[in-house]
């Protein structure tokens, strides 16, 4: 895991408070994605999940989060790259989406980014795989492209419709 470079962003002093946005970045293979830090409730190591029947392959199952049942979504599978084979080093990011709490399974959490809202680029349309619909925007960090996940879209359509 890379060293966190939160300080760098602040020291630049270019980002005014009202325009700044903090994101948690995580890696999935060689790609980096992010979600707003305010939606993240908890980050925990992968410790297995109970599979749910009649759900799409990106639903890894449910876990017990201090007495509440929380569904886990496999982000890799959601992006159509096949199921992750999770190990103890894989990470579940638990987030709140509206009223619900959900977890997404990723390879690792890599960074906390502070960005300027004006630096968010729109997602180019016309991506045939439909992946673009799962992103809300794109930012550039350290010359790397970081996709901002649209959580509502990610958890949508989890059930297999009959």
């Amino acid at each position: 895991m890379e060293a966190l470079n939160i300080k760098d962003d602040y020291e630049n002093g270019e980002i005014s408070a009202e325009n700044s946005l903090q994101l948690i970045a995580f890696s999935l293979g060689d790609q980096t994605y992010s979600v707003e830090i305010t939606t993240v409730r908890e980050i925990r190591a992968w410790n297995g999940a109970t599979p749910l029947p009649n759900t799409r392959e990106f639903v890894r199952g449910v876990i017990n989060l201090r007495g509440t049942i929380v569904p886990i979504f496999d982000l890799r599978a959601r992006f159509g790259d096949g199921q992750t084979s999770p190990t103890k080093t894989h990470v579940v990011v638990v987030m709140s989406v509206g009223e619900k709490w959900v977890g997404i399974l990723v390879d690792a959490v890599s960074d906390i980014l502070t960005i300027n809202k004006n630096d968010i680029h729109p997602v180019p349309e016309g991506n045939s795989s439909g992946d673009s619909e799962l992103l809300r925007g794109i930012i550039t960090h350290n010359d790397q492209m970081v996709g901002m996940i649209d959580l509502h879209a990610v958890i949508d359509g989890a059930k297999i419709e009959e």
């Binding site: 999940a49 109970t50 199952g61 007495g67 059930k159």
Partner: peptide, 20 residues
């Protein structure tokens, strides 16, 4: 509460080992 209703499943429960 956090997901949706699934056909054939009435709900979940926490078992003695902490799993669902």
């Amino acid at each position: 509460e956090n997901f949706e209703r699934i056909e054939g499943i009435a709900g979940g429960t926490i078992l003695g080992d902490g799993s669902v």
